[in-house]
């Protein structure tokens, strides 16, 4: 009878520990531990010097139920929603044209979407502020062509914030859409046309259903980060309309109320988890989320 080799693994644990182990430890330190820290802090208080006092209190969460905070949450959700919808409406045709063009310039067009990404988005948003200001180029153009007599107030409105957000997030929408649309089998579109469907019908019957995973991916990739953004509403919105991000940022900086900031962050994380769960339930592709 042949003896079993000493080196034969009886289970899969050893290889698993060696390969996944280091990453797991990294995640533990970089993700899990800080999260626990934030969660703990959300139940703490501050003294008059803004120092954190480690005494349990639920006052921070209590504050969140006040109408002011709820209003800010609602506003953020609304702005994030509008931004997402606009990103889909603008991003889809864009992605479609790039994905299905037979032109040799296809790579170039794709790069044109990605390249602005390489510049810090903060700087690009400042660029928008200069461009839209009363003495900015847009107003100058409008005045020179006599379309208006006085500079138009583009800046410091909720709409401006949405514009900035859409601008920042369009690539996040276009990329997953592009991937999904490229995979679309051209012969399906021909078949649809052959069977009597006009282009609009083909869009709704064939193209949209088959690229819905891309749309889903794109929506998640836009909506969730959008909730947490604060610098766009600061710079383009004039600091007028607070979003959750602004609120949280303020607690950790000028208001010096870290426990409250921690509580707000925990809530934001929970909201995000719920959204991802809904996405998953609706059949979203969890593997391509990182596209």
């Amino acid at each position: 009878m042949a003896k079993r080799s000493k080196h034969e693994f009886k289970s899969n644990t050893m290889p698993a520990i060696v390969t996944v182990g280091p990453v797991a430890i990294l995640l533990l330190f970089l993700v899990v531990a800080p999260l626990i820290f934030v969660a703990v802090m959300s139940f703490c208080q501050t003294d008059e010097f803004y120092n954190v006092v480690y005494k349990f209190t639920s006052v921070n969460y209590g504050k969140l139920i006040s109408t002011d905070y709820l209003k800010i949450y609602a506003q953020s959700l609304l702005i994030a929603f509008i931004t997402t919808v606009l990103c889909v409406l603008i991003g889809y045709p864009f992605a479609y044209i790039i994905a299905r063009t037979k032109s040799k310039k296809k790579q170039l067009f794709y790069m044109l979407v990605i390249i602005p990404f390489w510049t810090n988005s903060l700087i690009r948003i400042y660029g928008w502020r200069t461009f839209l200001g009363s003495s900015g180029w847009l107003n100058k153009l409008l005045m020179v062509t006599h379309l208006v007599n006085e500079p138009v107030d583009f800046l410091y409105k909720t709409g401006t914030t949405v514009l900035g957000m859409v601008y920042c997030f369009i690539p996040f929408m276009v990329l997953p859409l592009y991937t999904a649309i490229e995979k679309l089998d051209g012969s399906l579109l021909e078949a649809s046309s052959d069977l009597g469907a006009k282009p609009v019908k083909t869009l709704f019957e064939v193209i949209l259903p088959l690229t819905s995973s891309g749309i889903f991916s794109g929506c998640i990739m836009v909506f969730i980060p959008c909730l947490g953004y604060f610098f766009v509403s600061n710079i383009l919105g004039g600091g007028n309309t607070d979003m959750i991000g602004n609120l949280i940022e303020r607690q950790f900086k000028s208001a010096n109320n870290w426990p409250l900031g921690a509580a707000l962050s925990i809530i934001l994380i929970l909201v995000t988890l719920i959204l991802v769960k809904i996405y998953q339930k609706l059949g979203g592709d969890m593997d391509n989320l990182g596209v």
């Binding site: 089998d185 012969s187 399906l188 021909e190 078949a191 649809s192």
Partner: peptide, 11 residues
């Protein structure tokens, strides 16, 4: 006219 495709092109 209608076409039957080589790759079937079923939806």
């Amino acid at each position: 006219v209608n076409t039957v495709f080589q790759t079937y092109a079923l939806f």
